[in-house]
């Protein structure tokens, strides 16, 4: 009837008649200070440089949006991120479904493989794909041995290489939120639906699909956003002709020392990322995501 807060001693022995207004602020202070000094300040400073260097104005943004080279990088970034998201979704959905319904021993085994892969050092995994995909690599050699091809396919330093490598990295991030959603579904709902006369396809379309939509959205948005800003795998498996945004930012800073332009590119990447998270938060809450 009344909304009286549950009193508790922990955290503060509050003998005063009124609750303290700033309780707990001292405990967060070190973390807050660290992040303010070494996260907020440098990021804001970088973004400011995009409108201050070489002279105040929006010329950096004009250059980014005016040059076909940079526009191509944007296009390529979205293409790779979209492609990777699509492929991981197609692969991850059946796997998540399998994990939810298969006998415990099988799903536990597959789960172990997924976690092992996710926890393995990123460079080690990328290295594996460089070895597999190179011109004299195992895949090309096997395909030639069985006579499917006569010339080695070009699988690395191009779109194919990046997509395969990124899909490999991103798969766990799609499987886990999907699995978290499917696992919570109540089987009796589906029995009820089919007792109501729905065919298997109708049950899938009218009951299953809407119920897993939030998990799909969480996975899709997370993988897409992570892919947009990814650096290592595209840098090692991609080619110069399909550079992605993160690599561009790195190059602008490291080779060209063009901080203004790098700031502008970083700002654009940030805005897109935050916008997608805002959409997710607005429509789905912080659903299902579990990232390492």
């Amino acid at each position: 009837m009344t909304t009286v807060p549950t009193p508790s001693l922990a955290g503060e022995v509050d003998l005063s008649p009124e609750p303290r207004r700033l309780a707990g602020l001292g405990a967060v202070a070190p973390a807050l200070g660290l992040l303010a000094l070494f996260f907020v300040v440098p990021v804001v400073a970088l973004l400011l440089r995009s409108v201050l260097e070489p002279q105040p104005g929006l010329q950096n943004y004009a250059e980014v949006f005016g040059s076909t080279t940079y526009l191509k990088v944007f296009g390529n970034t979205f293409l790779v991120a979209g492609l990777v998201t699509l492929v991981t979704l197609l692969l991850a959905f059946p796997v998540a479904w399998f994990l939810a319904v298969a006998p415990r021993r099988w799903s536990a085994l597959l789960f172990g493989v997924i976690v092992l892969s996710m926890w393995t050092n990123l460079l080690a995994r990328t290295y594996a794909w460089m070895v597999l995909l190179q011109g004299t690599g195992i895949i090309n050699r096997m395909l030639m041995q069985i006579g499917l091809i006569s010339e080695p396919l070009s699988l690395i330093n191009n779109l194919v290489g990046v997509t395969i490598g990124m899909t490999y990295i991103m798969l766990p991030f799609m499987i886990l939120p999907l699995h978290a959603t499917i696992r919570t579904l109540d089987p009796t709902v589906f029995q009820a639906a089919s007792l109501c006369g729905a065919s298997r396809f109708q049950v899938f379309r009218l009951v299953f699909a809407p119920l897993v939509a939030s998990g799909v959205a969480a996975g899709v948005l997370m993988v897409f956003v992570m892919s947009l800003g990814y650096f290592v795998t595209p840098a090692l498996l991609g080619g110069t002709s399909n550079m992605m945004l993160a690599e561009l930012i790195a190059q602008l800073v490291q080779s060209l020392l063009n901080w203004g332009l790098a700031g502008a590119a970083a700002f654009i990447l940030l805005v897109v990322t935050l916008a997608i998270y805002a959409v997710q938060f607005r429509y789905f809450g912080f659903g299902g995501g579990e990232a390492r």
Partner: peptide, 21 residues
């Protein structure tokens, strides 16, 4: 929210920003 932001932002942005600082 601020405490969790470094996790969701592209690392490359943080890397460049910290490098500059």
């Amino acid at each position: 929210a601020l405490f969790l932001t470094p996790m969701v932002l592209p690392v490359v942005v943080l890397a460049v920003a910290l490098y500059a600082l």
